[in-house]
């Protein structure tokens, strides 16, 4: 198969255009975060003429940004760990045992995708209120774990399916119990699956906005998306300088970790969908 030179050039032109379109909007955040308000109005899309750090200074000293950053980090870390702890045994059971209700269980997991946010948030509001978990980080973590769990279980089941049962059977003859064989034999072979689940729950918990908006009630408890939305909404005019600085900083951790983990997430996502 050959491709004419003209077509090859066109191929590269279109791909580069796509890339510009997908990556360039980020540049506005970067540029604006180093401009003064007047600088942004004077030149809405250029590189800053003179670099200023007032925006960063403002969000660090005059806003709750640092607290909200800590909240987001804590929520993400806890959600990732809890998701793995809850999903691993369930994924293992789905992969290794044929039990009654197995299909029902799988269907329920998949069906949770379709539950409307508004109904869930009304119900969860009542649940969290009962246990005094409204406006708390544990409340948010429990919610996010329940959101990431169905997919995590499904993904890990896929990974466990690929590990030969014979390995475990050999160990069991030597007197190794189910739990030990899961921890000692299956898990070390499923590291890519665990990384995929970790990346997925990280994205979900770091980026989620709607539920955090309803559950978290004051500045000290906001996660970063809620902080950004509130910061934008406060006062009449949107102050793009500090907002861009905060938004950019809110992206950096998740972007770096996503780039490290995306390989596993993508293969986990597509593994189940393609076979």
């Amino acid at each position: 198969m050959r491709m004419s030179p003209v077509k090859q050039v066109l191929l590269h032109v279109f791909v580069v255009l796509f890339m510009l379109l997908l990556a360039f909007p980020m540049a506005f955040l970067l540029f604006n975060s180093f401009k003064t308000e007047q600088g942004i109005i004077a030149s809405p899309m250029g590189v800053p003429r003179e670099v200023t750090f007032v925006n960063y200074q403002e969000i660090f000293t005059e806003s709750t940004f640092i607290t909200n950053f800590k909240n987001s980090s804590l929520v993400a870390l806890a959600t990732v760990l809890l998701s793995i702890i809850v999903s691993t045994p369930a994924g293992y059971a789905l992969s290794r045992f044929r039990f009654r209700g197995r299909t029902m269980f799988s269907m329920w997991l998949l069906a949770t995708q379709s539950f409307p946010g508004i109904i869930m948030v009304l119900g969860l509001f009542t649940v969290l209120k009962t246990y005094h978990l409204l406006n708390t980080i544990p409340g948010l973590v429990i919610m996010y774990t329940s959101f990431s769990m169905p997919f995590s279980i499904w993904l890990l089941k896929g990974y466990f399916d690929k590990i030969p049962v014979a390995l475990e059977e050999a160990a069991r003859i030597d007197g190794c119990g189910r739990v030990r064989s899961l921890v000692k034999i299956v898990l070390p072979l499923s590291v890519p699956g665990l990384l995929a689940v970790g990346t997925f729950s990280l994205l979900l918990s770091w980026n989620e906005f709607f539920f955090a908006l309803v559950i978290m009630r004051d500045n000290a408890h906001y996660t970063l998306p809620v902080f950004l939305a509130r910061f934008m909404g406060s006062g009449g005019v949107v102050r793009w300088g500090p907002l861009s600085a905060a938004a950019l900083l809110a992206c950096i951790p998740v972007l770096i970790l996503f780039m490290l983990g995306q390989k596993y997430l993508v293969s986990g996502l597509t593994g189940g969908a393609i076979k």
């Binding site: 990556a23 909007p25 955040l29 980026n207």
Partner: peptide, 16 residues
């Protein structure tokens, strides 16, 4: 590069 927007918080995407 094509993956970048996937990682961004929807709130950041929207305000951008």
């Amino acid at each position: 590069i094509a993956l970048v927007p996937w990682a961004l918080p929807p709130v950041v995407v929207s305000l951008m």
